[in-house]
Amino acid sequence: MKQKNYRRCVSCRRNRPKQSFWRVVRIALNHQIEIDRGMGRSAYICPDINCLTQAKTKNRLSSSLRTKVPEHIYQDLQERLRG
């Protein structure tokens, strides 16, 4: 039986409740990339340095969102890990 509100990390492919992930969104109207807010195409990533590094190296967020993810998004996610 599939449980509600589970998502899959674009990097490690683990299924977890969506609250345990960061949500990266390509906003529907203007195609800008936001973290944790907005409506549009979403990708989920574990709050883990290994997942973040692998997603950046292999362009997994860009592939999932079907657009280029700006460098500042990766920097913001790294800052969240430090904070």
Results as ranks from 00 to 15, higher is better:
Met1Cys: 08
Lys2Tyr: 09
Lys2Thr: 12
Gln3Lys: 15
Lys4Val: 12
Lys4Gly: 14
Asn5Ile: 08
Asn5Lys: 10
Asn5Pro: 06
Asn5Leu: 12
Tyr6Cys: 06
Arg7Glu: 10
Arg7Thr: 06
Arg8Lys: 14
Arg8Gln: 11
Ser11Asp: 03
Cys12Ser: 12
Arg13Trp: 14
Arg13Ile: 12
Arg13Met: 13
Asn15Ile: 12
Asn15Gly: 10
Asn15Ser: 09
Arg16Phe: 07
Pro17Gly: 11
Lys18Tyr: 06
Gln19Ala: 09
Gln19Ser: 11
Gln19Lys: 07
Gln19Phe: 15
Ser20Glu: 12
Phe21His: 02
Phe21Cys: 02
Trp22Asn: 07
Trp22Ser: 04
Arg23Cys: 02
Arg23Gln: 09
Val24Asn: 01
Val24Thr: 05
Val24Ala: 06
Val25Ser: 02
Val25His: 01
Val25Trp: 03
Arg26Ser: 00
Arg26His: 00
Arg26Asn: 00
Arg26Glu: 02
Ile27Phe: 07
Ile27Trp: 05
Ala28Gln: 07
Ala28Leu: 07
Leu29Ala: 15
Leu29Phe: 10
Leu29Gln: 09
Asn30Ala: 04
His31Ser: 08
Gln32Leu: 07
Gln32His: 11
Gln32Lys: 11
Ile33Phe: 00
Glu34Trp: 02
Ile35Glu: 10
Ile35Trp: 00
Asp36Arg: 04
Arg37Gly: 07
Gly38Thr: 01
Gly38Asp: 01
Met39Trp: 14
Met39Ile: 08
Met39Glu: 15
Gly40Phe: 00
Gly40Lys: 02
Arg41Ser: 04
Arg41Asp: 02
Arg41Trp: 04
Ser42Cys: 09
Ala43Pro: 00
Tyr44Gly: 02
Tyr44Pro: 00
Tyr44His: 04
Ile45Leu: 10
Cys46Ala: 06
Cys46Lys: 03
Pro47Thr: 09
Pro47Cys: 08
Asp48Val: 07
Asp48Arg: 07
Asp48Phe: 00
Asp48Ser: 06
Ile49Leu: 13
Ile49Lys: 11
Ile49Met: 15
Asn50Trp: 11
Asn50His: 12
Cys51Tyr: 01
Leu52His: 03
Leu52Ser: 06
Thr53Asn: 13
Gln54Met: 11
Gln54His: 15
Ala55Ser: 06
Ala55Gln: 03
Ala55Phe: 03
Lys56Glu: 15
Thr57Ile: 11
Lys58Asp: 09
Lys58Met: 14
Asn59Ala: 14
Arg60Tyr: 13
Arg60Asp: 12
Leu61Glu: 00
Ser62Trp: 03
Ser63Leu: 13
Leu65Val: 03
Leu65Pro: 00
Leu65Ala: 03
Arg66Gln: 08
Arg66Ile: 02
Arg66Trp: 04
Arg66Glu: 15
Arg66Phe: 05
Thr67Asp: 04
Thr67Ser: 09
Thr67Gly: 04
Thr67Ala: 06
Lys68Glu: 15
Lys68Tyr: 07
Lys68Thr: 15
Lys68Leu: 12
Val69Asp: 01
Val69Thr: 04
Pro70Trp: 02
Pro70Asn: 07
His72Gln: 13
His72Ser: 12
His72Trp: 14
His72Arg: 10
His72Cys: 08
His72Glu: 14
Ile73Asp: 00
Tyr74Thr: 07
Tyr74Val: 04
Gln75Met: 09
Asp76Asn: 08
Asp76Ala: 10
Leu77Ser: 00
Leu77Lys: 01
Leu77Asp: 01
Leu77Pro: 02
Gln78Ile: 13
Glu79Leu: 13
Arg80Trp: 05
Leu81Gln: 12
Leu81Pro: 04
Arg82Pro: 11
